[in-house]
């Protein structure tokens, strides 16, 4: 009855592009990443646990996760404000401000690191001024947080912008007709619908902060137990040819990033979008 079951595709190039894409990804991404799991599997669980939970490592986790979380919260607030202002208000230099948002994507992290350090160190332009009111930024956890705010800002802004643009004016108009004030409209009508995107932007910034190395290594004091982040600790272990230690820590960080990635993917599903459009 069914003479021929096949799904012939009208557009050509399926086999070629599938073959090349999968081969390239496997050689460059999948196989190299798999070596981490291979390497860790040579450790017993006891060994792994011991390496991954020494006091120095625990302090580094606390700092990495804590600073990334704090920076992500700061970005959640300011990023949303910036996106809101850019989408809904008119003011001079708006286009320039908009273009500037992507600077952290485009500026090499090492450059960002040394210039942030210089500006916010105790004899820098802003640092000296802050020093006078008793705030030390460079070489403290606060400095790490600042670098992470720089790195994470575009994620929140670029996630929120399209969502704010797509808000239907009728929503607010209807609420206004029903007698709601601006505050009520914002908190009861607009904000509830924006939560998935806010959370997506927050997680993206957080995930990026966890792995960041280049900009932090300059502004952090890199002192064990106080200003040493996990990527730096991995780097130190590599320099000492302690591959086991480095891989164990890497695995912990990798699992954290994958969990976040999963969360972000399901969030953007929730927000009903095909893929998040924030560029890195």
């Amino acid at each position: 009855m069914v003479t021929r079951i096949q799904t012939k595709r009208a557009l050509p190039g399926f086999g070629l592009s599938l073959g090349f894409t999968v081969l390239y990804l496997s050689l460059l991404v999948l196989i190299p990443l798999a070596t981490i799991f291979l390497k860790v599997s040579t450790l017993s669980f006891g060994e792994f646990w011991q390496i991954a939970t020494t006091p120095r490592v625990l302090a580094a986790y606390r700092l990495s996760f804590g600073a990334s979380l704090a920076a992500a919260f700061i970005n959640l607030f300011f990023g949303f404000l910036v996106a809101w202002v850019l989408v809904r208000y008119r003011f001079p230099c708006k286009r320039m401000a908009d273009a500037l948002i992507d600077l952290p994507f485009a500026l090499p992290t090492a450059v960002a690191g040394i210039s942030l350090t210089t500006v916010y160190s105790s004899n820098g332009w802003l640092g000296s001024w802050l020093e006078r009111v008793g705030v030390k930024v460079a070489y403290t956890p606060l400095g790490i947080c600042l670098a992470l705010v720089f790195i994470g800002l575009p994620f929140v802004v670029r996630t929120m912008q399209p969502v704010l643009e797509e808000l239907e004016p009728e929503l607010e108009e209807a609420a206004a007709c029903m007698g709601a004030g601006r505050g009520q409209i914002f908190f009861r009508v607009l904000l509830p619908g924006l939560w998935p995107s806010l959370l997506t932007g927050f997680s993206l910034a957080f995930a990026r902060g966890l792995g960041e190395y280049g900009s932090i290594v300059f502004i952090a004091g890199n002192l064990p137990f106080s200003t040493e982040i996990v990527p730096l600790l991995i780097m130190t272990k590599l320099d000492q040819f302690d591959y086991k230690g480095a891989t164990a820590l890497a695995l912990v960080m990798l699992l954290a990033s994958f969990t976040l990635m999963l969360l972000i993917n399901s969030l953007s599903h929730l927000a009903g979008k095909k893929s998040h459009r924030a560029e890195v």
Binding site: V29, L33, T35, G211, Y213, P231, M253
Partner: peptide, 26 residues
């Protein structure tokens, strides 16, 4: 596949370098 393409963005740069050391290093 789409998720796999994003993988390098989710991995810390230090780890990205490390995997090649693990593969091709001493």
């Amino acid at each position: 596949l789409l998720t796999m393409i994003d993988l390098p963005l989710a991995v810390s740069p230090v780890i990205a370098g490390m995997i090649f050391v693990l593969l091709y290093g001493q």
